[in-house]
Nucleic acid binder design. Structure first.
Length: 211
DNA sequence: TACATGATGCCCT
DNA sequence: GGGCATCATGTAG
């Protein structure tokens, strides 16, 4: 049985992040580590816009750090935050127009032992599994996503060691329900409802959301 | 060159 | 629920 389906094409990302973000839920993030494969289902994302979004890194124009957000859609933007954590985004909209989506939580599927190793924890119970990739810093650490290794990488090439694919289990796709909430951990434009989660999913970060 | 700040997570109460 | 580690980046001087 196939673990992940067809690759998501660049045209998928060549739209407003507010349209791409909810559709990204349920897709599969794939990391190749040599012979091993790590996969996780996207269960929580946040949209970040361009100039009209004060919370976005691209709000004040292009710099060397945020250049990927202004480039072609479907590329990885990784930044380092709070001296401790990496966060992973994918660029949206055509070249020259900023926009992107932050990956906030995954449901780990394959390579759970490798992820736990990367996180420096052991899985002793269901709570440990739920916390494995629940949060932007956590999922980046579990998938060994760093700025040096992954920033600027093309997510739409299957030969890449990092890409996004369809979820082949259609039953899950049918059952999904999407919830929209304000974004987490920001001070500017905090009221905008640009966070998207799969309702009721145990791997969503933050307080439990019933659905 | 210096400094303030942040799209977080962990540990302590 | 709150404090804090820790550093790349951006902006000011």
């Amino acid at each position: 049985m196939k673990k992940f389906g067809s690759l998501i094409p660049r045209s998928f990302y060549n739209r407003d992040p507010r349209l791409v973000a909810p559709e990204l839920l349920g897709k599969i993030l794939v990391r190749r580590e040599g012979r091993k494969v790590l996969t996780g289902r996207v269960v929580e994302v946040e949209a970040y816009l361009g100039e009209n979004d004060a919370a976005s890194h691209s709000a004040r124009g292009e710099t060397r750090r945020n250049a990927v957000m202004f480039g072609l859609p479907g590329f990885v933007y990784v930044y380092f935050i709070y001296g401790n954590h990496y966060c992973m985004n994918v660029s949206c909209l055509p070249k020259g127009i900023a926009g992107g989506i932050l990956f906030r939580a995954l449901e780990p599927l394959e390579g759970i032992e490798e992820m736990a190793m990367a996180r420096g924890i052991s899985i002793a119970g269901p709570k440990d599994l739920e916390n494995l990739t629940s949060g932007p810093g956590r999922l980046a650490e579990a998938f060994d996503i760093t700025r040096l290794r992954d920033n600027g990488k093309d997510l739409t090439r299957k030969k890449s060691d990092l890409f996004i694919a369809e979820d082949p289990s259609k039953d899950y796709d049918r059952a999904r329900r999407i919830l929209t909430t304000p974004r987490i951990g920001i001070t500017k434009a905090a009221e905008l409802p640009l966070r998207y989660v799969l309702a009721g999913n145990a791997f969503v970060s933050g307080p439990r959301i019933r659905g």
